[in-house]
Amino acid sequence: MTGASVPGAGGVGSGGVPVPARVARRPRGRVPVGLVVAWLVVGLVLLWAVVPGLFTAYDPIAGVPAEKLRPPGAGHLFGTDAVGRDVFARVVHGSVHSLSGALVAVGVGLLLGTLLGLLAGAAGGVADAAVMRVVDVLLSVPGLLLALTVIILLGPGTVNVAIAVGIGSVAAFARLARAEVVRVRRTDYVEAAFGSGGRFGAVLWRHVLPNSLGPVVALAALQFGAAILAISTLGFLGYGAEPPTPEWGLLIAEGRNYLATSWWLTTLPGAVVVAVVLAAGRISRSIGRERG
């Protein structure tokens, strides 16, 4: 035998080398701390929206002029604004506007987008090409610009803003849903379903749709965060809720005038928005990994 016992070219010493401890592998089933925090954040904000009274005793609309522009402290967690309203109370009470808006926006995008994607992917041919070119056009327009265009058509208001943001995300949902449908459509089990005598609609509903939804649901979670941001942005620009509604974007816009003297009016509501958006992103990633 040619050099069966000669060590390899890398000059590996043989004999006398103590056997090192085996590389310990990363243990499985560790608690993902980031994900738990993300769910806690979202859960807290949901509770704010459902039972705001539990978290703050202050009125979000009526202020106490004597206590205006107090910095954050024991009495007022997030401080007070120019008319003496508790900012924390306004954030808590405002969550319902931002959350329901985001929910409507994601709902519009998810429903319309998935429907378009499902039809395009399942029908194929001319219908597919036509739908996807429209989607391409939608995707080529910046989201905020598209939302502004829709608002100008529909007029301002909380619901309209939500719909506008939703329409802005239809294209992303449609494209993702179509890609998944096209993939699932080619699988053996879908052909087998047709082979078992399934009608087109029944096979789509029973097999194609459930198996395509995984990444779409993950995108919905991601879009939830993005929608909160977009709604706040539009609120900030003055297209959303009317003052004195404590909507998050509006809160930040109102605080802008006191940026130099009262940082908490913009920073703290802004931090809440950032936290919710990040949490939604983290949750989305975990959904994508589980179902994908």
């Binding site: 699988t187 053996d188 089990y189 087998a192 379903a193 029973r206 097999h207 459930p210 198996n211």
Partner: peptide
Amino acid sequence: YGSLDPRQ
């Protein structure tokens, strides 16, 4: 592995 719907 491919001919059975994994969700059913």
